[in-house]
Simulated scan of single mutants.
Amino acid sequence: MKDHIKKVFKAGKAENAGWDDRQEMLSLFHQPGMEFDLKDHLLKDLYKTELKDMDSPNLKKLFNRIWCKIELKNHQAGSKTKYLYTAIGIAAALVIGLFVGIYINSLQTKPETVYYAAHSPKGSVSEVILPDGTVIFLNADSRVRYAMEGENGIREVFLTGEAWFDVAKNPDKPFVVHTSFYDVQVTGTQFNVKAYETDNEVVTTLEEGQVIIQSSEKLKLAEDIILKPGEQAVLSMSSKEFTIRNVNTKWFTSWKDNKLIFINTNLKELVVLLERRYGVEIEVLNKEILGLHFDGTIKNESIIEIMEIMKKALPISYKISGQQIEIASKK
């Protein structure tokens, strides 16, 4: 009987075990006549088991703790003989449950990737530090979902909105930023990705290192686009074409330092930026003024101070009611 159990377990636990071998092994647990020999086999096998998966419980230590607790109760009990059979039954039952659970779990495919999320609401800028040391600044109304062990073992981030990255170097584990439009792959560098779904452009700005813009499910590129420091890739959502240009990167990354720089920014774009930064809703009553352009820098000013600056620089008037702002042409 014991030799038969040993033979069935050996075949069922083998890496190349077939479905029939595994079914035969599991069927042993449903045969009352084999209960004692089966428990005895599991108890012996338990002490020899060393699990390779570090995330799995240490059954040897766990069983020792269970046994010690039972022994403690034994000193308080009257009948040692009665205790012995009870203890073996309790311990074996626990072992069987643990063994079956872990074994069945081992038959499953690779566990799904665990993702973590971070969100920066309107009116705020958030900083996220990943376990590998990578630093992410999230601009207003932005969110990321990230995993340090993503598909194929890579580090990956899914971005909606705008984020600045300082990626910890690890040549053996690439870092990929997924946007709704294309992917950005790096090993260690500083760059900014602006990918709001409501914007007309998706913009990647490189400060240090190198990034590679790659195809995604939504956008197929003829070839990868490699950026050098000081370069910016702009994808037009209407034409689906890229423009590569040299820029002063600070104009596009200063927001993480709580500063916005506007260079010939039209009022339509300015309204969107102010809504995100201050968490307000802005309505422009006269559409003809949307083409007005504004130059300036915002750092610690309140929304009222900003509106006063704009009022002096542009032919506009405004009215604030709670979180609502109306902008009209100056009469």
Score class of each variant (00 low, 15 high):
A14V: 09
D20I: 12
Q23W: 07
S27V: 09
L28Y: 06
M34Y: 13
M34F: 13
M34R: 09
E35I: 04
D37F: 08
D40R: 12
L42I: 12
L43H: 06
K44R: 13
D45V: 01
T49P: 00
M54C: 02
S56L: 15
K61D: 14
K61Q: 15
F63C: 15
I66G: 04
K69T: 09
I70A: 12
E71A: 08
K80T: 09
K80F: 07
L84T: 06
A87C: 10
I90Y: 11
A93N: 14
G97C: 11
G101H: 14
I104K: 13
I104A: 11
S106Q: 13
K110W: 07
A117M: 10
H119F: 15
G123K: 08
E127C: 05
V128I: 14
V128P: 03
I129Q: 10
L130H: 03
T134M: 05
R143M: 07
M148D: 06
G150T: 07
N152E: 13
G153E: 11
T160R: 06
G161N: 07
W164V: 02
K169I: 00
N170K: 09
N170W: 00
P171L: 02
F175Y: 06
H178K: 08
H178G: 06
H178V: 02
Y182K: 02
D183Y: 05
G188S: 06
Q190G: 00
A195C: 08
A195W: 01
T198E: 13
D199W: 09
T204S: 12
E208D: 09
I213W: 03
Q214L: 13
G230C: 03
L235A: 03
S236K: 04
M237C: 05
S239E: 11
E241H: 10
E241Q: 13
R245D: 09
R245F: 00
N246H: 08
N248E: 12
W251G: 12
W255D: 03
L260A: 04
N264E: 11
T265A: 07
N266D: 15
L270A: 01
V271F: 00
V272F: 04
V272L: 00
L274W: 00
L274A: 01
L285E: 11
L285S: 08
N286A: 05
I289W: 06
G291W: 00
G296K: 02
G296D: 07
G296F: 07
K299P: 01
N300C: 05
E301A: 08
E308Q: 14
A313W: 00
S321T: 11
E326A: 08
I327M: 10
